[in-house]
């Protein structure tokens, strides 16, 4: 975290000095008073300046950007980040070459990076922000693939009259299957097993 220690005749003076040094508005600073000022005799003898530590308050968006920028650099991935923050959500879109590495097998790496980013962003805060990371439109394409898969398997279950157990999926992916077949008149779905091996099962109604 960017922070400086400054001094001043009053705490307020020290804060202003810190704001100038860090080149931010003073309401963006988190202030810790290290020493209260002491007015000396006749304001001269034994007087002591105020000492404070001022730290720049980082928004969840700042934290996400700092963490991901360093993480991707350490993974030797060149990337640019587009980050949008709303009240309860942070959406990050990553662009760059070799994004296949970031996605990984069935989005495994992308999910891991997203989960770690979410942990870091939501550390030490009381307001939870849901973090989503996408690249090369992977999430949307995966959703479309899953919708098609769900419909195809529904037909198969109807034809063979036997249940089908899908491969393990994360909660997001399972939700896509469930909601696609929610109104299907012939089949119903439920999940079995424990994460990360939890699987969707499609059965005949």
């Amino acid at each position: 975290m960017k922070s400086v220690i400054t001094t001043g005749k009053t705490v307020e003076d020290a804060v202003l000095a810190a704001a100038i040094q860090l080149a931010v508005q003073r309401d963006k600073l988190d202030i810790e008073v290290l020493e209260e000022p002491v007015k000396g005799l006749f304001g001269v003898f034994g007087s002591k300046d105020a000492r404070i530590r001022a730290s720049v308050i980082r928004t969840p968006k700042d934290i996400a950007r700092e963490f991901l920028t360093e993480l991707l650099a350490k993974m030797s991935l060149e990337a640019e980040l587009d980050i949008k923050e709303t009240e309860d959500r942070i959406s990050i879109y990553v662009t760059g070459p070799k994004m296949g590495v970031l996605i990984g097998h069935r989005g495994e790496t992308l999910d891991a990076v997203q989960y770690l980013t979410s942990l870091v962003v939501n550390r030490n805060t009381d307001q939870y922000k849901r973090v989503t990371i996408d690249t090369e439109n992977y999430r949307k394409k995966r959703e479309e693939t899953l919708v098609k898969l769900a419909k195809r398997l529904s037909h198969k279950v109807q034809k063979t009259k036997r249940k089908i157990v899908l491969e393990p999926m994360n909660p997001f992916e399972r939700r896509v299957i469930h909601s696609t077949l929610q109104k299907d008149p012939y089949v119903s779905t439920h999940s079995e097993g424990e994460d990360p091996y939890r699987k969707v099962v499609i059965t005949l109604k």
Binding site: L71, M75, G104, E108, D111, A112, V113, Y115, L116, P196
Partner: peptide, 10 residues
């Protein structure tokens, strides 16, 4: 597991 996945990718 998430740490291992990221490290494996790198």
């Amino acid at each position: 597991r998430a740490i291992r996945t990221v490290v494996k990718a790198a």
